[in-house]
Structures are given as C-alpha cells and as structure tokens.
C-alpha cells in the first residue's frame, strides 16, 4: 500500500488558546512495498506524523492518501475502520498494552475486534507466535510472566495478527539488548521482503537507517527537511552538520579519512560498504591501485 502526504499540517488543540502546531506543510510519498525511516530529534514531530497514517490524529490541513483511502480534516471515524485494519501500529514500549490472561488470547484480540471468528483468530495467534520467534508452548502462558523482550514480541504478534499491509514502528527496539535489537530488525526486514509489507520506521539508530531503509525522512520542528535515499541524505556533509542530524558510524569514520585525503566513489554508510571501497584502494589488492 502506498502512502502520500500532501501539504499536511496538524495543530494540537486547534482553535483553542492552547493551540500548538506540531506539523506544517509535510509532503512525501512512500511507494507500495516501500521502507521509509523517519529521523529527527525528540519533539520534532515524528510521532505526530505517524499517527496520521491510520488517522489516530486527523490532519488540520492538507490531505493524506493511503492506497484508495483519503484522509482530510473532514473524514469521519466511521469511514476509517477499513483503513485501520490495514495499518498496523507498533507504539513505543508496546508491551505496556498487553492485558489478556493468556498470550494466545492477547494476540487474538485484535483480529476478533475486526470481525475474525474466534477459531481463526486463535489459529492466527499461533502462527504469529512462530513468526515472532516464540514457540507454541507460550500460547497458554500469561504475558506478564515473560521477559521484557518476549513481551514486546507478543505485542508485535498482536499487531501482525491483524494482517496489516502497512507496519508503522515507533522506535521498536528501544530498551532491548543488542541481540534482541538485531532479531527484531531482522524480523521486520523479513516481513518487508517476503510479504511485501510497507514499513515506516521511526528511529534514532542511524545504522538501521543505513541497513534497511529505501528512503529517509528528516523531521525538524514539525517540518520535513528532506526525504531521499540514505545515501543522498548522509552524503551532503555540510547539510548534515548544519541540520544537526546524526550519521551512521561508518559514514562518520569515512568522513575522517576523506578529511585526510582519501577519496570515496560514494560515501560508505555501513562497515561492509566501507570495507569494499578500502579493498579497492588497498596497496597490492585493489582495482584502483596505481
């Protein structure tokens, strides 16, 4: 499912003396099966932006299209139910939303809410447990006996059980250990690759942006500064510096070498990309050897 924002603005408590603008004139497109990362400092509007995608917040101005659905300031909630089924939202610390007595029932809750029969919802719950890397023995256990990382997997299984076409992830790996982070990001990438899910990822991890995203949107003070490939965004080092955004460690390191005169074909964003280019320049090894 493709997503298009056209001149979207959002103001909290619009029309009151407390009105606070949070988004202004945001326009971008994510193609079907796209993978967009959204970066920006705390308070830059990232979370407000993603809540527009399933119309948890409706734009104050402008228009959003998600596949055939259109969201404008006038759209009513009744029109939105079919849309919400297709947009899976994983909020920060989703494990805090677990509530059922058993893990299976917690995962099955969402689909049942959207009209799926109990039997099918339960079957989906078992399948989703496997998808997130937990075996069937977890089904009858209480979600509250699990470790933090396991609870998060259950919460994500609950979102996946609704079979969304778009997965919106708000810092999904915050607070996990490195192993857990890697497993989680690999899972999302697999869903993207194998099932064609469109992914929107809000993150502070520039390594993840470099490794997974097709495009990266940079937010600052409610405005979209740019939306382009990670290569294009991180490549402009003057712009990166003046916009106060972080860059992947490999890019930062490559920049230090280019300050000493090493020339890159294009700025490496990962350790592997950097190593590929270093080999080409390595005395006695590379194609570039003079």
């Amino acid at each position: 499912m493709a997503i298009t924002f056209e001149h979207v603005g959002y103001t909290y408590q619009a029309g009151t003396p407390m009105a606070t603008p949070a988004l202004s004139d945001v326009s971008f497109t994510v193609p079907d099966h796209g993978y967009l990362a959204i970066i920006g400092h705390t308070g830059s509007g990232k979370s407000t932006l993603i809540q527009q995608i399933n119309a948890l917040l409706k734009p104050t101005t402008g228009k959003i299209s998600v596949d055939d659905f259109t969201i404008t300031p006038q759209t009513t909630n009744a029109d939105l139910k079919p849309l919400r089924r297709h947009v899976g939202m994983v909020f920060q610390f989703p494990e805090s939303q677990l509530f059922e007595e058993t893990i299976q029932r917690d995962i099955a809750f969402g689909p049942q809410n959207f009209g799926v029969s109990e039997d099918e919802a339960n079957q989906r719950a078992l399948n989703m447990l496997e998808t997130v890397g937990l075996d069937e023995s977890f089904a009858d256990r209480s979600p509250f006996e699990l470790s933090g990382g396991q609870m998060r997997r259950v919460a994500i299984a609950g979102v996946l059980a609704m079979q969304p076409k778009i997965l919106v992830l708000d810092e999904p790996t915050a607070g996990l250990d490195p192993q857990g982070r890697l497993e989680m990001m690999t899972l999302f990438n697999r869903l993207h690759q194998e099932q064609g899910l469109t992914i929107i990822l809000v993150t502070h991890q520039m390594e993840d942006v470099a490794a997974y995203a097709d495009e990266v949107a940079v937010m600052q003070a409610g405005k979209l500064l740019t939306c382009a490939t990670p290569q294009e965004v991180f490549n402009d080092s003057d712009w990166v510096q003046s916009s106060d955004i972080a860059v992947p460690r490999a890019a930062k390191f490559a920049q230090r070498l280019s300050d000493r005169g090493v020339k890159w074909d294009q700025l490496p964003l990962t350790a592997d990309q950097l190593a590929d280019q270093l080999v080409q320049r390595w005395p006695g090894m590379g194609a570039h050897h003079e």
Binding site: P178, R249, A250, F253, A271, D272, L274, A275, D276, L278, V279, W282, M285
Partner: peptide, 17 residues
C-alpha cells in the same frame, strides 16, 4: 554492541586484509 572498529576489522578480514 560490537564496536564499529571491530565490525570494520571483521569486514576487512573477510576481504583478505
């Protein structure tokens, strides 16, 4: 986490350096 320098060293080693 694996420090960046260790990742890079591994990547170089994999390429015969």
């Amino acid at each position: 986490d694996v420090p960046f320098t260790a990742k890079l060293k591994q990547a170089l080693q994999d390429r015969g350096i």
